[in-house]
Write a protein that binds this DNA or RNA. Structure first.
Lengths: 339, 339
DNA sequence: TTGTACGCGTTATCAT
DNA sequence: ATGATAACGCGTACAA
């Protein structure tokens, strides 16, 4: 009830008439303390408004019950979903998420990671494989578990939970090929320092190459993952390299942006143009029945990453590589190529 | 170069042939240490891969260079933008963001906040005014600065940086009234434990009441902030209470969802129906020219919150209440009411 | 079952 | 300008 200042454990102990050790054990639910004593200590702690001092605890136990995530801008809804799932699942296990973001900048990424390690995170979650070796060395030396998310490290160097971007990309492209499309354009995410965007683009190229089709350089535009950028990219393609019947987008934000531009130009989708692509946050699917998409379960990845991390922190073992299945959603209305 | 284990500051000191105190000062850029000595220590620290132990530092300095944010699900793009800006600005000042989320649940919110305080955050950022009094007591007793974001506390009890939701809502509604609309419907955000959603809805009611118009109960639907929920809400309104010519949405996700449903039903927007609402992430504006919106500068709020917090942590003073201006974007094509 | 005492790694206060 | 040394608040061997 009273609130003199920030009470220490010693204050609680004194108030309860026990020693520090007993107070500590009582609050830790230790069976080494008799029920009445335990109860009394807990009562007093509540009365005094005692809040444990995490730094002291971390210093003593060498664990912070904290997990760090080094993410590209989380205002990208893709990562927002994963961040949310991650924070939520970690919290459920008594862990808190330390979030560090960077703008796809390797140097900033290392600095951000360092900041997390200095805060004593018990584990680190990264996105993708595209990192400066120094980054891996840093977390390696810190001797904390590290989870790579979104991408899969087939080389087996790292623990990872993610999606087979390239393969999914190949499949969806093949679907369009099967519909008769021959003239393709692509709005890709920015591929620099981003293996997901790169793999998705590569997949398109591979699928086309498999049928002897080459992607015209002017039919490929890179854009930041956002609706306006997607629309702008679409404008460029339509203006400067028209004639394609299929448009593949690296992400649903890009697809929705492209779609908006088509609506504005009275280009019927999928009548005049088929748009397809990755649906990281299910936005494309919700917006229109016109898009064929690869659904990427972003939240699921976050959840799995949390569980894997928690398992490892608890000393349990997890598979080094965990692939999350994507689902190709083919709309009834997805268009065939124009004659 | 070598990496034996996690070197302590004492290891660095020994390697550099100085005392612990000197090593500490050297790395802290203290002017109390001679340049050559300082340089040598820093070299050695780098060589050994020394990473400061945050918990120990926090224990000694009583600061963690960490700020906590207690947010509703950050996969809501609204908050994602703010989270991003917050993390970014804090990082630029050497602070790291501790993120705790909750699903609009007051109890979970308190637990989450407690977790942050236990981690020793130097400050706390909250969203909105709708909190359990115990929450305020908790952070108050922790004796750390607290910033309320999004909402404004005109009672002057808390530091806050946000938006005048109700007033903006009144204005945009009046705009529709001025266009001749008399039959209104509203898709509001879930108002429970959410003063922003509530204020926005209240604003609509106020504006209508000002012209002697009452909002029919069956013309008001609450929906979670998401595109699919927005569409579902729109379905319900159109099916069960048709006849409205103006639809106000609590948020751009809801508006976009509603728009999608209208497109599907061949309802022309704004020809047949005018849709307007709050545009938290500029999505509505980017999607279509058909929507009149109140642009809420979400990222700006995050940025300001960070700066205010940093200022207070540095002992500087800030205005207790800081209002961020919203901007009403009236599209040329926003429809007049049908005759 | 409970208490005593030490250590966690750093900063800060003294001397020197 | 540098070096001992005492906090910082908690967990936990070890002793009782």
């Amino acid at each position: 009830m009273k609130a003199p200042a920030n009470p220490r454990l010693s204050d609680v102990a004194r108030a309860a008439g026990v020693s520090l050790a007993t107070a500590s054990r009582a609050l830790a639910e230790s069976a080494l303390v008799r029920e009445p004593t335990r109860e009394r200590v807990r009562q007093l702690a509540k009365m005094l408004g005692y809040v444990p001092h995490g730094a002291a605890r971390a210093l003593a136990t060498r664990r912070s019950r904290t997990v760090g995530a080094v993410f590209p801008p989380v205002d990208n809804p893709i990562f927002a979903a994963a961040t949310q799932a991650l924070a939520h699942e970690l919290a459920a296990a008594g862990y808190t998420l330390l979030l560090a973001t960077h703008e796809y900048d390797p140097v900033a990424e290392i600095a951000a990671t360092r900041a997390l390690l200095e805060r004593g995170v018990d584990g680190v979650v990264l996105i993708g494989m595209d990192h400066d070796p120094a980054l891996f060395e840093l977390v390696g030396r810190a001797n904390v578990p590290c989870e790579i998310t979104w991408s899969l490290d087939h080389a087996g160097h790292h623990y990872c939970v993610g999606v087979a971007h390239r393969l999914a990309s190949v499949r969806i492209t093949q679907h369009l090929l099967d519909l008769g499309h021959r003239e393709f354009a692509v709005i890709a995410g920015v591929t620099a320092h981003n293996d997901r965007a790169r793999e998705r683009l590569t997949g398109v190229r591979e699928a086309l190459a498999g049928r002897g089709i080459e992607l015209r350089p002017d039919r490929v535009v890179e854009a930041e993952f956002s609706i306006p950028q997607g629309r702008r990219a679409c404008v460029r393609l339509l203006d400067q390299a028209p004639g394609f019947t299929a448009l593949l987008c690296g992400n649903d934000l890009l697809a929705v942006g492209a779609l908006a531009e088509c609506v504005r130009r009275d280009i019927r989708v999928p009548g005049d143009l088929s748009i397809a692509g990755f649906d990281d946050i299910d936005m494309a699917a919700e917006m229109t029945p016109a898009l064929t998409t690869v659904r990427v379960p972003a939240a699921e990845i976050g959840r799995l990453a949390a569980h894997r991390m928690l398992a490892r922190l608890a000393g349990r073992d997890v598979a080094k590589l965990e692939e999350v299945r994507t689902e190709i959603v083919i709309r009834e209305s997805t268009g065939k190529a124009r004659a």
